[in-house]
Design a binder for these strands. Structure first.
Length: 284
DNA sequence: CGTTACCTGAAA
DNA sequence: TTTCAGGTAACG
């Protein structure tokens, strides 16, 4: 469920709560362990984490990176339905709670994950987990030039390119649909056909939708909650995502749903224009 | 490149 | 009953 704004909101919530805390216990539902930790036995997980003090809470793309006092990094990905919530040790279980990370001081982190797609890894170097990710769209280093380079020569739909975490990291299905609406580009436009002017709008839109998502503490369509278990607000501000059948706030046309890059895709057929036709392929 | 699989529901 | 789901990795 979580994209960059949701993961960043959780990171900001948890940082002041967990940094300086020592891990005292690790409990994982046996039916989840194999999927969560990639076959790592519970004893290995406990050995790596118990007794460690958390020294930092970072993020790269959609990954949470908890620095440990032995120099290693505890890497968490929430995938579709993962949640990581700070609770008093005696609080009732989270929905679909699958694991607990006990901390000193009377609180723990609760791991809930309906679909069990989430992952935990412990690595010596964070690059082992996040080294292949493309640049952060909200970073100053992500210039228009860098954005154009990511699109260059790609025949795949622009939406698929934006979702490819190796090109740029952090955008997911909600924010891609919203950015394409803001840039007035149809999601199925081949990336190489996006004009320079449209690309510039899209570059700016990608950054602004992510930043607004963070300001609104993430989008809670279904499962997402922040680091204290509270929903975000961003789902109240979407223009197209899951609004198919409803009128566009800008022009009144009916928002439609299609599938692009294997993902449900929402756009306004009036506001979002197809790119100029590509030059005709030769032959045939 | 697009499609399928992973898992467990909730919604149409 | 069927489809769909904030993601990614493994297919062909």
């Amino acid at each position: 469920m979580p994209e960059l704004p949701e993961v960043e909101t959780i990171r900001r919530d948890l940082e002041p709560l967990v940094v300086g805390r020592r891990i005292t216990a690790i409990d994982v539902d046996p039916g989840t362990l194999g999927l969560l930790a990639g076959g790592l036995p519970i004893e290995a997980l406990q050995h790596a984490l118990i007794g460690r003090t958390i020294t930092g809470a970072g993020r790269r793309g959609k990954y949470l990176l908890f620095a440990l006092d032995d120099g290693r990094t505890f890497v968490v990905h929430l995938r579709m339905t993962g949640r990581l919530v700070w609770r008093p040790s005696d609080a009732p279980p989270e929905p679909y709670e699958r694991a607990r990370i006990g901390l000193d001081g009377g609180h723990d982190l609760r791991w809930g994950d309906l679909r069990k797609f989430g992952t935990w890894r412990i690595v010596d170097d964070p690059a082992e987990a996040v080294g292949k990710l493309g640049p952060e769209p909200i970073d100053d280093a992500f210039t228009f030039r860098a954005f154009r380079a990511a699109l260059a020569g790609r025949t795949a739909p622009i939406k698929a390119v934006l979702l490819d975490q190796r090109r740029m990291s952090g955008l997911g299905n909600i924010y891609v649909d919203e950015a394409l609406f803001e840039a007035r580009i149809r999601p199925d436009t081949p990336a190489a056909d996006v004009s320079p002017a449209a690309a510039r709008r899209l570059w700016a839109a990608a950054r602004s939708v992510l930043e607004r998502g963070i300001e609104n503490r993430g989008a809670s369509f279904k499962d997402y909650v922040d680091g204290q278990g509270q929903p975000g607000q961003q789902h109240m501000h979407v223009q197209v995502f899951r609004r198919h059948g409803k009128p566009c706030y800008t022009c009144g046309a009916t928002i439609v749903r299609t599938v692009v890059g294997g993902r449900g895709t929402h756009y306004c057929p009036h506001c979002q224009r197809r790119a100029r036709q590509r030059s005709q392929p030769r032959g045939a």
